[in-house]
């Protein structure tokens, strides 16, 4: 047999083997049948340890809470041009509830909700200007989260100076975090001085500039701040990592428990001002299933992350004060953004 033939034969055998393997294995086949819940991520992954992951965990919890057997599945968006198509895949498959994660999907979600009045939509971080009956925007009172973190910082600071390194003030939630943080610090420590700096760039760079975050955090440290709030994606993370290198200084994370997302910040991370996206998504799914979901904006819960390595420096007295603050925010007796 000529060598040429032998190679061809070998190739054919491999081909045959692979084809056989391809045909024999079954499985997959989508989510058709039963009560199905779909989730479309922003251009990120469901294991991003942040937004998308929290929402996905919430969708799974929500599915588990539904009495009927419900399944949740997700599509990770590769390109922002695919938002509408990815939502449509779930619509075509008969999904009853569709969760879309992130500000970027806002317009595509509204369009899909208008076109499919029988499907319930949940838009995480999507503010609704006009209420559609089948679309709930899951928003969070960031000012409350910032206030709680600030209240803790006001009690922990020894120099009586607290700093904040923030994404752009173009994004309202960032402003809410900042105002809440400052007011919270003043609430527990009326003499506190605050140094808060917004990133000067546009939306496309403000959350992706860890170098600026680090430099700005350094400036605040040099001016005497000993606890710094980093709120602004990678920019804020840069601030946390810078503070971690300063002995004795503390830092506060944002959105999720950043103990898990920025391990470099372990030497300083005393807590994070969290938005409980998973709880909010699961709650809205239960409501959507029960038929009680209201269109428009729904405000989820916020909270402080565990103190991890710094559990011992947060005294019982401080914990009592924080509990009072939370109760005050909850019943409205404390206004996180007066004026």
């Amino acid at each position: 047999m000529a060598p040429k033939r032998r190679h061809l034969l070998a190739l054919l055998m491999v081909l045959g083997l692979v084809t056989a393997a391809a045909c024999s294995s079954d499985g997959g086949g989508g989510i058709s049948g039963g009560y199905s819940i779909g989730l479309v991520t922003d251009t990120g992954k469901v294991d991003d340890k942040s937004f998308n992951q929290s929402a996905w965990e919430g969708a799974q919890d929500g599915a588990a809470n539904i009495p009927a057997s419900a399944t949740a599945s997700y599509i990770e968006t590769e390109e922002s041009k695919d938002y509408a198509n990815n939502i449509q895949l779930f619509v075509d498959d008969g999904a009853k509830i569709i969760v879309t994660v992130g500000f970027g999907l806002g317009e595509a979600t509204i369009e899909a909700a208008k076109a499919n009045p029988d499907v319930m939509f949940i838009g995480v971080d999507q503010w609704q200007n006009e209420a559609l009956p089948n679309l709930a925007g899951l928003m969070f009172p960031e000012a409350n989260a910032g206030f709680m973190a600030g209240a803790l910082a006001g009690m922990l600071t020894e120099t009586n100076i607290v700093g904040a390194v923030l994404g752009t003030d173009l994004v309202p939630p960032v402003v809410f975090f900042k105002e809440g943080w400052e007011n919270g610090a003043r609430y527990t420590n009326p003499g506190v001085q605050t140094i808060s700096t917004y990133h000067p760039g546009g939306l496309d760079v403000a959350f992706g500039d860890p170098e600026w975050g680090a430099t700005t955090a350094r400036q605040a440290l040099d001016q005497g701040a000993d606890i710094i709030f980093g709120a602004g994606g990678a920019t804020g993370n840069g601030a946390l990592i810078e503070v971690a290198g300063e002995a004795g200084a503390l830092c506060v994370g944002v959105d999720t428990d950043q103990w898990f997302t920025v391990p470099e910040a372990h030497p300083c991370l005393v807590t994070s001002a969290m938005k409980l996206i998973d709880v909010g998504v699961a709650e809205l799914i239960s409501q959507a299933y029960a038929g009680t979901m209201q269109g428009g904006n729904y405000f989820g819960e916020v909270g402080l992350a565990p103190h991890h390595d710094f559990d011992s420096i947060v005294t019982d007295e401080m914990r009592d004060t924080l509990a009072e603050v939370m109760a005050g925010l909850a019943d409205g007796s404390i206004n996180p953004m007066p004026g």
Partner: peptide, 19 residues
Amino acid sequence: LLIGVVLILSQNASPATAY
């Protein structure tokens, strides 16, 4: 595409369904 088949199988998915 053939190497893709191997990768799909390694994710416990069906190459026929996927392709």
